[in-house]
Amino acid sequence: MNIVVCVKRVPDLAEAEIVVDRSEKGIETEDLVFDINEWDNYAVEEAVLLKESIGGTVTAISLGEEDSEEVLRRGLAVGADNAILLNDRAFDGGDAFATAKALAAAIERNPFDLILTGAQAADDGYAQVGATLAEMLGIPHATLVTGLEIDGNVARVHRELEAGLEEILDVRLPAVLTIQTGINEPRYVSIAGIRRVARREIEVLGAKDLGLSGDEVGAAGSRLEMQRLFVPPATQKGEILEGSVDVTTEKLVSIFASKGWLA
């Protein structure tokens, strides 16, 4: 089974302060810490688990700049066999459609049975690349996958719906599955593990290598045109209680008390 897994390098967001840059289309990255997109982390683990249980190869692929090699190396350290970086100025500013276009062209060069992507990326949050990729490759897809079993050329898939509901489907391979968090427990990737793959080659491809022209990819090949990125005001609705911990908690308690919740 040849498995391809798409990964992306994104900033860690939980406590990051997002500052829009002068172009108003991107953000200041200097103070941010980058890592593999969380959903992709689960996807890589799932790919390697599958390889470990039924055999085959895993190819990790990422579209991004040179620093994206970092997440690819991480993939290799987890157990991927090959890594491909799609790096070209021409890819800059692409939306999900343009990104999927480049990925599809790269993936198509070799035989594959299964493609895994994260359900969405933490930065632009499109939740779109996987299913778009499937359509471009003319194969079925399932998104938000929280459970996966392979039986011959059929994937039995659990898809997450709302309110704790899941649907269970059979999808014929080859297919694209977009992986939702919680599907597995990603293993730890040690520095020693990364060092072990430090000298493994990462194939770097540009638009030309993929037979794509500059206006099929990047901002030019996008269906969406980014107009402006902005940070909305922090509070819109309520009141931030000011003061020391003592003061703020006291205020809150009197609010609760006035509602009669502390009776």
């Binding site: 930065d123 632009d124 269906r223 969406l224």
Partner: peptide, 15 residues
């Protein structure tokens, strides 16, 4: 639409 985990927003034109 939101971006960066809801910390930012982007406005986009649909071509």
């Amino acid at each position: 639409r939101p971006a960066y985990g809801g910390k930012a927003r982007m406005s986009v034109l649909l071509r």
